[in-house]
Design a protein around this nucleic acid. Structure first.
Lengths: 189, 189
DNA sequence: TAGGTTTGATTGACTGATCAATCAATAAAA
DNA sequence: TTTTATTGATTGATCAGTCAATCAAACCTA
């Protein structure tokens, strides 16, 4: 459908320019249609952006459940969650740039804020759930919070480019955090 | 001088609106002068923004060296660095919002990127220096990297509002990270 | 010190560019 | 024939940046 084509074009455009300061005209041109058509289908720029965000969120969710299906032990589930967040598709510069701009946009758009919270909560609950099988619930919550913040921080630094950690060392850093914290709080591996 | 008044007005305006989508006219109005004057003094919006950023960076640096002067042991220096980053002035919603927008702006402005790297490197080297007196250099570098990312992540989550950690629990989380990592890698207190 | 000159501060009005959004018109499909 | 897709042209708003004109302060000089 045309909606889908426009969303794909929006992601491509945001990625190419590394910015949310993207005009409807640019997106429409990238999709090979007229700007007016974008309005026809989405009603406005804001809704196009939200649809784009939902799409990225959906992809992340899909990757995540695929990875979780492969994991058997709780510890493997944790590693799977981390691996997905630093996988090539999620950690690609354009994707990271898009997320970053969504964070800023959230300052003004309640719906954007809500969607970002959905993502944050999902990450947190997935991590907590797996951690709670290895250590106690309070620790699980704290570790999940730390790991979540760590991931966000590594993303933002990645977006800044140079002397930022690569995907491999970034994910190793999060793995290490969890390993050390688990060891320090009586885990059962 | 007028330059200073305009910078202050810029910070106030960015803070109030929680966004870098701030017009020169808004800033000038906040400062009680005409928009043309802002151009007269700064030559353009970009330079006004950069001056504002330098000002915030300078404040952070000032707070930091004041805090470091109070600290005697390396461990205290580390705590001081963390405390400054989560102090009321630095962790205020408007300040955090401003930093966030600078990160986004860095995608398009080389000078903004450079300034942000200056900040990141300063934080990293301060932490590494203090850590290197407690543990070995390799570990010090890794811990500093983790702590830096953690701080950035907590900032971004704070900017998102609700269910984000408060300043106290955020700084406790970073402290805990460092304590645990030091314990796990043979530290001398 | 009075008069004249330069220099910087400050403004209002204006320009040009950029965009989101609208709409009437047309083409295609159902 | 009715509905849906699609567009070109246009509108209206928003801004950054410019400019010529005013105003004031500081600085000369005789």
């Amino acid at each position: 459908m045309r909606r889908r084509e426009l969303i794909d074009a929006a992601i491509r455009t945001i990625g190419q320019r590394g910015s949310l300061d993207v005009t409807v005209a640019q997106i429409a041109h990238e999709a090979g249609v007229s700007p007016a058509l974008a309005h026809h289908y989405f009603g406005g720029k804001e809704q196009l952006m939200l649809a784009t965000m939902r799409h990225l969120l959906h992809e992340l969710g899909r990757d995540l459940s695929a990875a979780l299906r492969q994991a058997s032990s709780p510890r493997q589930r944790i590693s799977a969650i981390i691996a997905v967040n630093f996988s090539a598709s999620q950690f690609a510069p354009q994707t990271v740039a898009a997320w970053l701009t969504f964070y800023v946009h959230a300052q003004q758009s309640a719906e954007t804020r809500r969607l970002l919270r959905v993502y944050a909560r999902r990450l947190h609950s997935n991590l907590t759930e797996a951690l709670a099988r290895i250590t106690d619930k309070v620790q699980a919550g704290l570790i999940a919070e730390g790991a979540g913040a760590l991931i966000d921080g590594l993303y933002i630094r990645h977006a800044l480019g140079a002397d930022a950690p690569e995907a491999t060392s970034a994910s190793a850093l999060v793995e290490d955090y969890i390993t050390v914290k688990l060891a320090a709080s009586g885990a059962s591996t």
